[in-house]
Simulated scan of single mutants.
Amino acid sequence: MKKIHSNAIASIEFKLSWQSQFASHVDCYFGEKVNFWRDFFPQALQEALLDKTVGDEVEVPLPHDDMILPHSSHNIFTLQRTQFNRRFLHGKILDPRLGRFYPKKFLQNVSGAVKEKLTPFRCIRFDETTLQVDFNHPLAQHTLKLAAKVHEVQGSHEERGGRCNDWVEIMTRNGIGFHSRYENMHTDFFYDDPFARMDWTDDSEFYSTPRLVTHLDAKAIEVITGFYSQFIKPGMKVLDLMSSWKSHLPEKLELADLMGLGLNQEELENNNQLTGYLLHDLNKTPRIPFDDKAFYAVI
């Protein structure tokens, strides 16, 4: 069986775990062609993965260094409210909201904020004339652990050109940490009615036609199934909310009850894991039609 060496190419499942004030978080990323000769890794992770083979898993602490800089008060700035470009998006006016993240390109006359830059900043305080922003990385104050599981080892081969990947940057640049609160203050998610529907057509029209397709790729389904298996145990009663023809639970998991709630009967009838189902439109009647404490878990 092939082992990882300094010139190997491998498929690696990365898991970044961290703790916020209210929850434990695990963010997953699948690297299909991880190049151990060319790509960038934390040194501890690269050393831990050497000589590992398919199925092996390692975990290392992820220090705050050049990849994710430690939190610094020097990255907090007070600006004029007018430096937030409310009209940056064509045809829409946006106001800054407490705790929310925005791309730096929304800012005007600020060092490091250019139109092409999507790097986020956080709005942490404001009044009628000023705006305080935080340029620190969303994970800068959290203790991080990085795990890696080997799925395939391809060995080495001759290369001409190509690109090198910074895997920590790839994992942490697209929203990880955005949902944690700033100094335990509630993030203002609700001012501009974010749950307002763009299309008020009755949901029953959309779901009148069965869609027996998967909306995730095989690797994402594998990750979700593995996540469910950590918390959902044999003998439990589980509610599959907004259910369809797949529940993504482990096939061999024997539950006392798996109830599906959805909008298309044919999709629900094709879900072999369900022990029962109910057609129910939660937009019309936003109350789940079951007794309290009827289920151990809801997915």
Rank of each mutant, 00 (worst) to 15 (best):
L50T: 08
K92G: 00
N272F: 08
Y191D: 03
Y182T: 08
G226S: 13
T209K: 14
D291S: 09
Q154S: 08
R81E: 07
E222D: 14
A23E: 14
M198G: 09
F195M: 06
L282P: 07
P289M: 09
E159R: 00
T82E: 10
D134S: 05
S6C: 04
G162A: 02
T129F: 04
A48K: 13
D56L: 11
K293S: 14
D192P: 00
H151F: 10
W245V: 04
F227W: 09
F22M: 04
D134K: 09
K105F: 03
L253D: 08
F135Y: 07
D51Q: 14
G99K: 01
K149S: 08
K105D: 01
A294H: 11
R122E: 01
G262P: 02
I68D: 00
D127H: 07
K219E: 01
D127K: 13
V153A: 03
L45V: 12
R87A: 10
A10R: 06
Q21H: 11
Q83Y: 13
F178A: 04
V54M: 02
H142L: 14
G226F: 00
K15R: 15
L282H: 06
A48D: 04
D203A: 12
M236D: 04
T187F: 10
I170N: 10
S6D: 10
K115M: 07
T209V: 15
F206R: 14
S229R: 13
G31C: 09
G155R: 03
Y182I: 03
K246S: 03
D134A: 09
D240K: 07
G175H: 01
A218R: 09
D127R: 06
L261C: 14
T78P: 01
P120Q: 09
S20M: 00
Q46V: 05
S204H: 07
D199Q: 03
A297P: 07
D240P: 05
F41C: 00
F22D: 11
I170V: 15
L131I: 12
M185V: 02
Q265E: 15
L89T: 13
D127Q: 04
N35I: 05
S24Y: 09
L255I: 03
L89C: 11
V223Y: 12
L98Y: 09
S20A: 11
D202K: 12
N136A: 11
R122I: 10
V168M: 06
H71L: 04
L89I: 15
Q132L: 03
Q230H: 10
V34Y: 04
F101P: 02
E251I: 11
E59A: 12
V60P: 10
Q46N: 05
P286G: 13
F41S: 01
T201M: 06
L62H: 01
D192T: 11
F22W: 08
Q19M: 03
L50I: 12
P63A: 14
L263H: 00
S208W: 00
V34A: 15
S111N: 12
I9G: 06
H25F: 12
W37R: 15
T285I: 15
D291Y: 04
A196E: 13
K52E: 06
M259K: 01
F231R: 11
A196F: 04
P250T: 08
H90D: 08
H5C: 13
K284L: 13
F101A: 01
S204Y: 01
V34C: 15
R97W: 00
K284R: 13
